[in-house]
C-alpha cells in the first residue's frame, strides 16, 4: 500500500465518491488500478469529467495526461455526459452486418436525421453502434433502451422507436 501520498478529499460531498474511494482502497491505491477506478467512475457518474480525473490523478499518483490517454484509448469510457432520452444500439458485428444490420442503421440515420454516435437535435434519441453484442444467433440485433429486438428489420425497428417517442409526448 502506498503511504507517501497524502489523501486528498473528494471533489464534492456527493455520496458516489465513496464508491470510487472503495475501489481505489481495494487495490491499495496502486497506480495499476487506474482502469478499474475509471470503470467505477463511469458506472457511478455516467462519464469521466475533468474533476474526476484530477481527483484520481492526485489520489493514485498517476499523471493527468496518462489518465486522459487511458480514458480516450478505451471505447467504453466517455468524457462527455450523454443527454438523450432514449438509446438505440445497432449491432454491426459481422453476423448482423451480413444479415442487414447496416441497412437498418442507414434507415434509422435517414428517418431520424442522426448519425451513429450522435444524438438527435431534439435530444430524444442517441444512436450508437456496437461491435457484436454476442447474440449472433438472433442477428440482426438492435437494443432499444433495455429492450432487445432480435431478427430485426428496418420497419419494425423504426416503428418501435416511433412508438417509444410518441409514448413520451
Amino acid at each position: 500500500m502506498k503511504t507517501d501520498i497524502a489523501r486528498i478529499p473528494p471533489p464534492s460531498d456527493d455520496k458516489r465518491w465513496r464508491i470510487i474511494d472503495t475501489t481505489m482502497r481495494r487495490y491499495g491505491y496502486d497506480s495499476h488500478c487506474l482502469i478499474e477506478t475509471l470503470h467505477s467512475v463511469q458506472e457511478a457518474f455516467g462519464s469521466l469529467d475533468d474533476q474526476a480525473m484530477h481527483y484520481i490523478s492526485a489520489t493514485l499518483g498517476v499523471p493527468l495526461s496518462q489518465i486522459y490517454g487511458v480514458a480516450t484509448f478505451y471505447h467504453l469510457f466517455t468524457l462527455k455526459p450523454r443527454e438523450a432520452h432514449h438509446t438505440c444500439v445497432i449491432c454491426v458485428g459481422t453476423s448482423c452486418h451480413i444479415k442487414g444490420g447496416a441497412t437498418i442503421l442507414s434507415a434509422i440515420e435517414k428517418t431520424f436525421r442522426v448519425k451513429a454516435g450522435q444524438t438527435t437535435a431534439d435530444g430524444t434519441l442517441y444512436l450508437q453502434t456496437a461491435r457484436c453484442l454476442g447474440s449472433c444467433g438472433l442477428a440482426p440485433v438492435v437494443v432499444l433502451n433495455e429492450e432487445t429486438l432480435s431478427k430485426a428489420n428496418q420497419n419494425n425497428v423504426i416503428q418501435r422507436i416511433q412508438e417509444i417517442i410518441r409514448h413520451d409526448a
Binding site: 484530477h54 499523471p63 489518465i67 486522459y68 490517454g69
Partner: peptide, 25 residues
C-alpha cells in the same frame, strides 16, 4: 516522462485519431 519526470505529454485517442496531448488535453 523519463528524463524530465514531468509526464506532461501523453497520447490520447487511438488509431489514426491519436494525438499527443498535454495534461487533460
Amino acid at each position: 516522462d523519463e528524463i524530465e519526470r514531468a509526464h506532461t505529454w501523453d497520447v490520447a485517442g487511438r488509431g489514426v485519431q491519436a494525438l499527443v496531448i498535454t495534461d487533460l488535453n
